[in-house]
Design a binder for these strands. Structure first.
Lengths: 146, 146
DNA sequence: TATTGTTATACTCTATAACTATA
DNA sequence: TATAGTTATAGAGTATAACAATA
């Protein structure tokens, strides 16, 4: 650790904090409140499927950085609860695009509000810090390398 | 969504980005490279056990926001690989504190370097942005509510 | 009685490999 | 041949409840 450069040290600390934040905030997820009963990744999938924008299973697997085979079970469980639908694509009959059901869309909206309002301390940051955080994260996530 | 306030909207966006970042970066974890073969949460546990600072199982469960019963299995797997040790506490014989083995400490150091150097785009941020990110995340994580 | 940690159980998540259907 | 998605399998993560040992 002594030979670590400043930029390395900061990056390392940021990574640790991101992990800590992720694992620590799980108890604040709606999933823990019994009202929604969704796992963290299920919450995330609902976020990724924007209403009116069908999402191919393969795109979802890419975004989640997991194998396509995992997505099958994940979507099975969401579908069996009436939250999403597999919509076969007319152009390419191999592709199945995911859509929210009306119930899924309602739950997604509730999730978003709950997240913003109660489940995270993010909204208690100052406006400037919030904007900075969003910008940095956007840059990180959209960078292409991830 | 129309009725969502600005602060809510930002907090919501930040949450989505944090989730996206977490799930997307998994393929950049050392765990995926076969060299370490650790799951994300196992990597995180190694980070949380600082060399020379024994960590009670109950504290670990708290930090991970998961039930104590999960920690038993998690630690079992790390212990069976010779990375951590359960150290019975002399003061309170109910408590078992976790320590890194020499091998665990070496792996932890390698993990930290790998994280900083290759696995994340964090070190490619400008110095200012990196510092800001670290400060914001520290404030979030140390806030007490998580 | 309360707390620390374990065990048992059931379900979800994840990776790998083999497979089907379509391109 | 290559791609989208599924199935099968095994192991890891997670929540709940019941339990033993200690405080």
């Amino acid at each position: 650790m002594a030979a670590m450069h400043r930029s390395e040290h900061d990056a390392c600390r940021a990574w640790q904090l991101l992990m800590k934040f992720f694992f620590a905030q799980r108890e604040h997820l709606p999933s823990s409140e019994g009202e929604f009963d969704l796992s963290p990744i299920q919450c995330h999938v609902l976020h990724l499927i924007e209403p009116g924008r069908p999402l191919p299973m393969s795109r979802l697997a890419e975004t989640l950085s997991c194998d396509a085979s995992n997505v099958t079970g994940l979507v099975d469980r969401l579908e069996s609860r009436g939250l999403v639908r597999r919509q076969p694509s007319p152009e390419d009959r191999r592709v199945k695009a995911l859509q929210l059901t009306p119930r899924g869309a309602r739950m997604r909206a509730q999730l978003l509000r709950r997240m913003a309002r109660r489940s995270l301390p993010l909204s208690r940051l100052s406006r400037d810090k919030r904007r900075t955080l969003v910008k940095i994260l956007e840059a990180l996530v959209d960078e292409g390398s991830i």
